[in-house]
């Protein structure tokens, strides 16, 4: 049964994309950038004054604030649209970046927080290595679950913009999130149109606003 494992990994991928832990200090190496931001997010989630389900929205907001300005949303959007990015007007591009970012945050924010509540104390973050090639870098990390003696690999792909290392893709257990979304978007655009993709993303947002995420 490959399907359950895949669906689980896809969920994990998305959770990580929401989590995008980067800290754009110019002096940080890519690995340090990933490590320090992960630590900051963990601190927020573990803070005594932030505990309890009634503070969920506050926690999600705080994590978003740490994360949102620090990842390259435009680059993520550009790569997920692939060849279709070129044909878009600047207005369409801006609109797409907004919708796509909102979709990621809405779909994963609450689930991420619930999963973190359950599992954060049971996992260890391991930072294995960074590989830098000019303005591009990859940071290899793992989440270790001691109780199950299992590792999940999470690799971050970054590029340097104005001296800051910014993430443009996350690869969880060998699944690149950007490529996965691109496959979905290509299928939709290929069968209908870019406009249809935007309609679908907006419908998804409305659908999510009407339903709550699973616990």
């Amino acid at each position: 049964m490959q399907l359950p494992r895949l669906l689980f990994l896809l969920t994990l991928c998305g959770l990580t994309l929401f989590f995008l832990p980067i800290r754009g200090l110019t002096t940080d190496s890519p690995l340090e950038a990933v490590r320090s931001t992960t630590n900051r997010v963990v601190l927020v989630l573990k803070a005594p004054e932030n505990q309890g389900p009634h503070l969920r929205e506050k926690r999600i907001k705080q994590v978003s604030e740490i994360v949102r300005p620090l990842f390259d949303r435009r680059e993520v959007a550009r790569r997920t649209l692939g060849v279709y990015w070129r044909d878009r007007t600047e207005e369409q591009r801006e609109e797409f970046i907004e919708i796509f970012t909102e979709l990621i945050e809405k779909s994963y924010g609450e689930t991420f927080d619930k999963q973190a509540e359950k599992y954060l104390d049971q996992v260890e973050f391991l930072y294995d290595q960074e590989t830098i090639d000019g303005n591009f870098a990859e940071v290899n990390t793992r989440i270790f679950v001691p109780s199950q003696n299992k590792h999940f690999s999470i690799n971050y792909r970054l590029h340097q913009v104005d001296g800051q290392w910014l993430i443009y893709d996350v690869v969880v257990e060998n699944i690149s999130m950007v490529r996965n979304f691109r496959t979905q978007f290509y299928r939709i655009i290929g069968k209908s149109s870019y406009e249809e993709l935007v309609r679908k993303l907006q419908a998804k947002l409305r659908q999510m606003a009407a339903t709550r995420s699973p616990s």
Partner: peptide, 28 residues
């Protein structure tokens, strides 16, 4: 792996494409 991917529809825009690509990437 009971609870980890319930309501998976929530996390994809096109579930078929998401599963297809996930499988192909893993196999590569």
């Amino acid at each position: 792996n009971l609870e980890l991917f319930e309501n998976v529809d929530r996390f994809s825009v096109d579930l078929y494409g998401a599963v297809q690509d996930g499988y192909l990437q893993q196999r590569e």
